[in-house]
Design a protein around this nucleic acid. Structure first.
Length: 547
RNA sequence: GCUCUCGUAGCUCAAAUGGAUAGAGCAACAGACUUCUAAUCUGUAGGUUAUAGGUUCGAGUCCUAUCGAGAGCGCCA
């Protein structure tokens, strides 16, 4: 952790004197009576100079003011108890402690909603995980860009246009409702009717070639769709820095392909261009009619970003079934000699209904995200009829976010509305409730917030448990940012909230005759609010004022 | 057929990348309310980590096999 960086460095250079190159890792202790542990010496139990090493370690540990006490157990596990007084004095600075040393520039690619159809439940995870990682990296001091990366090009659009042409639909007057009806019919027809398929493919080819009439139709569709998309996203408290789409890179593709041909990176196979990279399966770059694929536009998108957005990394927040696509994309970037940058597929599992089956409407179609929002909203309304509209809105988004982020992103999970809206358990409602209680307490107390000191001797167990839990923040934050896994922070927020509630419930704070005890608990509450709010920010959750 | 994930308490999930006695929540059971927001809190019980081997000081985590579940596999995105 931040306060112990110096100690870690000292211990590392100490070991170097014994020709041991070892990264010292101070971690949370498994032993309940301690806070931190160092396990690095376990593997050197039989080192000839272990006794001397231990002696030097004891010297270093003894000189560290942040350490109250330590013990070296069997097998040389080292346990550390932190000095609460020193720790409490540093608590306010948590926002500085989580800053990275070398800030980087990161693009978050949300793997695009398709403009032909409304946001469906499948988009929820990409939005939640993406927003959380975006916030976490921003708090860490990295430069971040979110790009919704719309699916506004390719076969789906061509299918819609061809369907519209055949059914004499006036695209200038088209509504979102009509558009939403066309897409399923068009894609259904595409699979069943080979003549329609050919026509649609020809539309796709002509779009790629910038046919003016088709582009005008496309513009109408996109504008109608985007308006609806933005209104749904606004309701879910999502926004993006970049509203780019696949269409934006269309003009970059022909020169890119020319260059790849010149450099002998791609060649014809059954009329289509495939990568010359030896892979199984082969990587398809264009279709045999010359039109483009998912991979073609993704490659060109990287070119576009290299030109317009300085970046060190790109994170593709896209579901795990597209693993092969991203493996192909990343190996192609390398094989095609694109500039060396970091690319990662932040994959996630499927969101299923409470039975564990894919989410469907009663009619069997894909379920709209806005419908899931409305159902959750109505459910919360039933539980507490007195809530104002804004609180219901925030709580709805809390439920949709927290329940999504509490699980490891790669695990498939079941959306169980009854479970997720329960105040008991690891739910968004529970963490909001603790935050509301704490806020009310501070407001009613008229606490002087300039004095953050605590009387250590007057702390009871519930105070200490809560205070010591703040030690874990940096560890979980690091876990989250290193592995791109928000669930560590979601789980930790529950732990803090539970411990706050335990402290709150123990004794009456405001009416307490012991003024030191009262002061301690109010300051502790203040700390809880700092941490709880910061965690909510990490997760993309707004604190509710009352509930 | 090939490739890749996964299998942890009755249920839903964790486990800091190989560290000590595998942790939470729900459900169950037993308690605490003329409340600073009880939409709460306290306690009890629940495990041969799918199975069988292996690697080493140490394995839920790594390797091999078997069983079981899911996903992907050039002209969709």
């Amino acid at each position: 952790m931040y306060q112990l960086t110096k100690l870690e460095n000292n211990l590392e250079s100490l070991l170097l004197e014994f020709n041991i190159s070892e990264k010292i890792d101070i971690r949370l202790s498994k032993d309940e009576s301690y806070d931190l542990q160092i396990n690095n010496l376990v593997k050197y139990q039989k080192h000839p100079k272990i006794n001397e090493i231990l002696k030097r370690f004891k010297n270093e540990l003894g000189n560290e003011s942040f350490i109250e006490e330590y013990s070296i157990g069997n097998k040389n596990f080292i346990n550390i108890e932190v000095n609460l007084h020193e720790f409490v004095n540093s608590l306010e600075n948590i926002r500085n402690f989580i800053k990275v040393h070398n800030p980087q520039s990161i693009i978050f690619d949300y793997g695009g909603p398709n403009i032909g159809k409304p946001l469906h439940v499948g988009h929820l995870r990409s939005l939640n995980i993406g927003r959380s990682l975006y916030n976490i990296n921003k708090l860490a001091g990295n430069k971040v860009f979110s790009d919704i990366h719309l699916g506004d090009w390719g076969m789906p659009i061509a299918q819609i246009i061809q369907y519209g042409i055949e059914n004499k639909i006036d695209f200038k007057k088209i509504t979102i409702e009509e558009l939403e009806e066309i897409y399923p019919s068009a894609s259904d027809l595409y699979l069943k009717n080979s003549q329609f398929m050919e026509s649609a493919q020809s539309v796709n080819k002509n779009l790629n070639d910038n046919n003016k009439d088709l582009i005008n139709i496309w513009k109408n569709i996109k504008s109608v769709s985007l308006k609806s998309l933005k209104s749904t996203l606004e309701k879910l408290y999502h926004d993006f820095d970049l509203w780019k789409g696949e269409s934006d890179v269309n003009s970059l593709i022909p020169p890119m392909l020319e260059s790849l041909k010149e450099n002998n990176k791609i060649s014809l196979d059954d009329g289509a261009y495939i990568s010359n990279l030896e892979t199984d399966p082969k990587i398809l770059i264009t279709k045999s009619d010359g039109s483009y694929l998912y991979l073609t536009t993704d490659l060109a998108t990287v070119l576009d970003r290299l030109k317009n957005t300085m970046f060190d990394k790109t994170f593709y927040v896209v579901d795990k079934r597209q693993k092969l696509h991203f493996e192909q994309l990343f190996s192609s970037l390398k094989y095609f000699d694109f500039p060396d940058k970091e690319y990662a597929h932040i994959s996630f599992g499927t969101l299923n209904d409470s039975e564990g089956n894919p989410f469907k409407t009663r009619e069997g179609g894909t379920k709209k995200l806005i419908d899931l929002f409305d159902e959750t909203y109505n459910y919360i309304e039933k539980i507490n009829e007195k809530l104002d509209e804004n609180s219901k809105h925030i709580l709805t988004n809390t439920v949709l976010t927290y329940s999504d982020l509490i699980t490891n992103r790669n695990t498939d999970y079941k959306f169980d509305l009854e479970k997720f809206t329960n105040v008991n358990g690891k739910t968004g409602i529970y963490v909001q409730y603790a935050n509301v209680r704490a806020n009310k307490l501070i407001t009613d107390s008229l606490l002087d917030t300039s004095d953050f000191s605590i009387k250590i001797s007057k702390l009871d167990d519930s105070d200490k448990n809560l205070l010591k839990s703040y030690i874990k923040f940096e560890f979980y934050f690091q876990q989250a940012i290193q592995n791109n896994e928000p669930h560590h922070l979601a789980d930790y927020l529950y732990e803090l909230s539970r411990q706050f509630n335990a402290m709150y419930q123990g004794v009456n704070i405001l009416e307490n005759p012991d003024s030191d005890l009262k002061h301690n608990k109010l300051i502790n509450t203040k700390f809880f609010l700092i941490y709880s709010s910061l965690l909510m920010e990490c997760l993309g959750i707004l604190p509710v004022k009352k509930m």
